[in-house]
Design a protein around this nucleic acid. Structure first.
Lengths: 118, 118
DNA sequence: CGACTCGTGAACGAGTCGTGAACGCGTGGG
DNA sequence: CCCACGCGTTCACGACTCGTTCACGAGTCG
């Protein structure tokens, strides 16, 4: 029944991601995510610290090829950011790398951390 | 980390569930449940805090495979919510996760600003 | 400036979920 | 034998959610 070969639970800067349940916790509270949102988040978290192109993110979360002009990834990154920031306002999780893609790396505001963004 | 494998009596946020009797108490008063309702409730409580798919709930409470288009689980979740809400109006027990399933987690209204929000 | 990338809110169609009601079945009492 | 009753299923309709797409503005770079 439970098929979870990977790490069942991922923890990152106040974020908790239970793969088997499809449950996301941030700061102790439940973050409601849709199926797409969760798959995108998992795709990003699995490549923690690395820049992931939109093409790859689309392939992982949607399962096809990203067509030219498709902004779906952008829109869903926005949705994820909104939900995560609502739960943990002082932490930035997803960073934009213009021309390359997105990168997942929790950075708490006010603390010294590698802020590679922009 | 595992919460109560098969305890006799389960207590959760004003709810009391005795397995052997099949007795459900909420806020001190008895909640009359049918066999199906109780089995569904037990299935949810046993996976407290986790999202449980309709397929699994059907398998646990009914004992077969959920056919496409079968709304039985939805209807019985509704019945359970109605009965629990009548006993404890300020507590939400069963939360919906669209696309995933249902999750049992008692949340008292007004005292808790977290959990199921959108 | 002009072209491009990205953020963000809104609108829309499709699908999912909540909910009341009708129906059928078995049970037990008159 | 008939009827009332509780239980479980199914249906119908409304409300809500999801994913896509568009539109516009901000920011960036040569």
């Amino acid at each position: 029944m439970e098929a979870a070969p990977h790490d069942e639970t991922i923890r990152a800067g106040g974020l908790e991601l239970r793969r088997s349940d499809g449950l996301v916790l941030a700061g102790g509270q439940v973050v409601q995510t849709s199926v797409r949102e969760l798959r995108l988040l998992v795709a990003l978290v699995d490549r923690w610290g690395r820049i992931v192109s939109r093409e790859e993110l689309y392939r992982l979360a949607w399962g096809g090829t990203l067509r030219a002009g498709d902004r779906s990834v952008d829109v869903y990154v926005h949705k994820l950011r909104a939900k995560l920031e609502q739960a943990l306002p002082d932490t930035a999780f997803i960073h934009t790398h213009p021309g390359f893609g997105y990168r997942f790396d929790p950075v708490s505001q006010g603390l010294n951390r590698s802020a590679t963004a922009r």
